[in-house]
Amino acid sequence: MSSVRYLYISLFSLGLVIFAVILQQSGYQGVSFLPCPLCILQRVGYLAIAIFCFLAVGIAPFRKLFHALALLSAAYGVSVAGRQVWLLSHPETSCGIDPLEIWINQFQLSKDIPWLFKADGLCSAKLPAILGLQVPEWSLFWFSVLFLVLLVTLFKKRT
């Protein structure tokens, strides 16, 4: 894959995180979108994809390694987003406070950059749909697209 494509993927992943932060700060249809623990873990997945794709541009000898790490990050994101979509369709499995929230909020990043990494919401909370889909469903869609793009291009020759 070309350097430009890695940059596009990196910028797209960063754009999704920025959109999530804007949604968190400003809300949508008068509803505040507080990030839950699984949302924070998905942000980590998008940031990892962005970082590994950016490194693939800058460190050419290790391009395949960084590509594979970005692919693993996308697979991780698919699993986390898939879990949250499952929780949305099975709200009875939620027990109120998520023990994962306490664990995530103890990390130094949650204390240093709370607007990006602090979990405050419930994973099974139904929020207003955006263009017909819940935010976790959009996240699952975009992680799946990124996973497929990275998988298909992993063994292609660089152009």
Rank of each mutant, 00 (worst) to 15 (best):
G96T: 10
A125C: 01
C36W: 04
Y28Q: 10
Y8R: 00
G121P: 01
N105M: 11
F143A: 12
S73C: 12
K111G: 11
P114K: 11
L72N: 02
S94Y: 03
G82S: 12
L109Q: 11
L109G: 01
R5K: 10
A119N: 06
W103G: 00
W115C: 04
L127P: 06
D120F: 03
Q29N: 12
F143L: 07
D98P: 06
Q24V: 00
Y8A: 11
Q42G: 08
I59S: 07
I22C: 04
V21I: 15
L11I: 08
F19E: 10
L11D: 00
A56G: 06
V145K: 11
Y28H: 13
Q24G: 01
K64E: 08
V4W: 08
V149M: 12
R158C: 00
L11Y: 05
G82C: 11
L146A: 04
V4D: 09
S13F: 05
I40P: 03
A129T: 13
L11M: 13
V31P: 05
K157D: 11
V145T: 03
S32W: 03
S26C: 01
A81R: 10
Q84D: 07
W142D: 07
K156D: 12
L7C: 06
Y46C: 03
F141A: 10
Y28G: 12
V31M: 09
S89T: 07
Q108N: 11
C53N: 08
V78G: 07
T153K: 13
K111P: 04
Y46I: 05
I130V: 15
F155C: 04
L154I: 00
F62I: 03
L133Q: 10
L16W: 11
F62P: 05
L88V: 00
G45W: 01
K126C: 00
S32H: 09
S2Y: 02
L65I: 13
G96Y: 08
Q84R: 12
V57S: 00
A60H: 04
F66M: 12
L150E: 03
L150H: 02
L47V: 05
S94C: 15
I104A: 04
I130T: 05
V149E: 05
V149G: 02
C36P: 06
P61L: 04
G30H: 02
F62R: 15
A81E: 10
L100G: 01
L72H: 00
L122F: 12
L140P: 05
I22T: 10
A70P: 02
I51T: 07
M1L: 08
P91D: 08
S94L: 00
A60D: 07
W86T: 08
Q24H: 13
K156N: 11
L148S: 13
L133K: 01
I102M: 07
P136S: 09
L41E: 04
F19H: 13
G27P: 02
P99T: 12
H90R: 11
I49L: 01
P61V: 02
W115Y: 05
I51G: 03
S144A: 14
A20I: 00
A20D: 14
R43K: 15
E92I: 07
V57Y: 09
F33C: 06
M1A: 07
L140A: 08
K126F: 07
K64H: 11
A75F: 06
P136D: 07
N105K: 05
F52W: 09
W138A: 12
V57I: 15
A75S: 08
S139V: 13
F12C: 06
